[in-house]
Computed example of a mutant assay.
Amino acid sequence: MAEGPDPFWWRDGEHSGPRRVEGGIQIRNTRGKVSRTWWSGRFLAVVESLGVGGRLSRGRSYARAGQIVSLDVDAGGALARVQGSRPQPYRARIGVPAYGKAEWTQVLDALAADASYAAALLAGEMPRGIEDVFDRAGLSLFPATARDLVMDCSCPDHAVPCKHLAAVFYVLAERFDDDPFQILALRGRDRETLLEDLRARRGAPAAPRGVPLTELLDSWFVAGPGLGTPIAGPRIPSDALLDQVPEFPVAVRGAPVTELLRPAYQALAGPDAG
């Protein structure tokens, strides 16, 4: 069933339509589903569960039209300016609790203990089981209910979420598609700090900033703890393989084929080979 008109249009004075924004932030998906990844879909499920009348559809329209003038994401929330029909953009804020050092220590220890989590994060992906890691620590990665969110907007509409807040949710979801670390940043850990903490816990030094990759080729791999020092084995002669080859039934000018090949094997191995 199609959603009807917003019954509270008169409260925010936008019955005449919003003012157009040049260069505003807009989502790429002009129709249908907004999210492209499971993590942004999970985030959007929260706002869609809070839908009020036509506000969600109007919020998507705002996001698709580029009505968001600016959007900043930091620990504890996102702050946006959204252009409506009035001259000054509205200030819309979405807040979530940011976790402290003790909470993040539990999460990072668990993530570092499983190589698959670290590998996915280093590859720019959000691991499928990361919600379970937060759950075991008594925490939540994604807001679960409206009580996990603080939402306010300077517009006259008293409903929460209003269409301006809904537009911010949709733009946030697309940002999360492109960079899942922004979800973790909301909870208090930016990308660089998180990855450095993971490397430190797994015993791999972080790459020095500004050093060309060609200068790191000799040290890109660092053995983990417990591997010990490699034990050098006896040097095997380069032509030892020929001694394992069955005797050929034919000879070349009276000489066995293996003996004809032996100088070539020794030459290929270099002058230091036995």
Rank of each mutant, 00 (worst) to 15 (best):
G4D: 07
G4S: 06
D6G: 11
P7N: 02
W9G: 02
W9S: 12
D12I: 06
D12A: 11
E14H: 14
H15Q: 15
H15D: 13
S16Q: 15
G17T: 06
G17P: 10
P18T: 13
E22K: 15
E22C: 13
G23H: 14
G23A: 13
Q26M: 10
Q26P: 11
I27W: 04
R28C: 03
R28D: 08
T30A: 12
R31I: 00
V34K: 00
V34W: 10
R36D: 13
R36N: 11
W38A: 15
W39S: 15
W39P: 14
S40I: 04
S49I: 03
G53D: 02
G54F: 03
L56Q: 00
S57I: 04
G59P: 10
S61Y: 03
A63L: 08
A65L: 10
Q67G: 05
I68N: 05
I68H: 01
V69Y: 07
L71H: 07
L71I: 05
D72G: 11
D72A: 13
G76M: 04
G77Y: 03
L79G: 04
Q83N: 10
Q83L: 07
G84P: 09
S85V: 12
R86V: 12
Y90S: 09
R91D: 07
G95D: 05
G95V: 03
G95K: 01
A98Y: 09
Y99R: 09
E103I: 07
T105W: 00
Q106V: 11
Q106F: 08
D109C: 03
D109P: 06
L111H: 02
A112M: 11
A113D: 02
A113V: 07
D114C: 07
D114I: 06
A119C: 05
A119G: 10
A120D: 05
M126R: 06
P127A: 08
P127Q: 11
R128S: 01
R128V: 01
G138E: 01
G138C: 02
A144S: 15
A146I: 14
A146W: 13
A146P: 11
D148A: 03
S154Y: 04
P156T: 12
D157W: 03
D157Q: 03
A159F: 15
P161Q: 14
C162G: 04
L165Q: 15
V168C: 08
E174W: 05
F176H: 05
F176Y: 11
D177E: 00
D177L: 01
D177H: 01
D177V: 08
D177K: 04
D179L: 05
P180Y: 07
Q182G: 05
Q182D: 14
I183A: 14
L184K: 12
L184P: 01
G188R: 04
E192G: 06
T193S: 09
L195Q: 10
D197V: 06
D197E: 05
G203N: 11
P208Y: 03
G210D: 08
P212D: 11
L217D: 03
W220V: 14
A223H: 13
G224R: 08
P225H: 07
G226P: 10
G226R: 02
G228D: 00
P230D: 06
I231S: 13
P234M: 06
P237E: 02
S238P: 12
A240N: 11
D243K: 15
D243G: 13
F248L: 07
V252K: 09
V252A: 02
G254E: 02
P256W: 05
V257C: 06
R262M: 00
R262C: 07
Y265D: 14
A269K: 11
G270W: 01
G270S: 02
G270I: 04
D272V: 02
A273Q: 11
